[in-house]
């Protein structure tokens, strides 16, 4: 898949994000702030029997942050909290090392477009860090 196709997928997530919605009292909330640009995100998770059954996020953030958040909610809904860190580290490798392989999660691969923009890595990671905060990881 080309960079252009990855970009189109990211834009689709940005225009119609999964998981963007209202956080309520059932959610445990984590927060992320990008002090560079003032972006703020709240990620709410519902965890039952160590499984994430729902993720919602509320954000004042850029397209990359919104797209990454959308991808995150798709990947991690119905996953065990113990699996969060391995996906997070996979994203880190994609961003920092442009490390994409046949084993990479297909939904994360479009974010490899961001690897060549170090100043935007924080944008892609913000919601993931907020979710880890919510899950106390």
């Amino acid at each position: 898949m080309s960079n252009k196709e990855h970009q189109a997928i990211l834009m689709e997530h940005y225009k119609s994000p999964h998981g963007l919605g209202v956080i309520n009292e059932k959610h445990t909330v984590g927060k992320g702030v990008n002090s560079l640009c003032g972006d703020e995100i709240r990620v709410g998770v519902v965890v039952e029997n160590n499984t994430i059954t729902d993720i919602k996020f509320e954000a004042r953030a850029c397209s990359i942050c919104i797209a990454s958040s959308s991808i995150m909610t798709q990947i991690l809904t119905n996953k065990k909290t113990s699996e969060v860190n391995s996906f997070y580290e996979e994203l880190l490798d994609i961003l920092k090392k442009n490390d994409v392989s046949a084993e990479s999660h297909r939904l994360l691969i479009p974010l490899s477009n961001i690897s060549k923009m170090p100043s935007r890595h924080k944008c892609a990671l913000l919601s993931w860090e907020a979710l880890r905060d919510a899950c106390k990881l």
Partner: peptide, 21 residues
């Protein structure tokens, strides 16, 4: 247009402007 996206688009067009607080 989020300012970060604006600055990135400008950068793609060889225009260096700032974004942020």
């Amino acid at each position: 247009v989020h300012p970060h996206d604006m600055a990135q688009t400008a950068a793609d067009n060889d225009v260096s402007i700032r974004t942020g607080s």
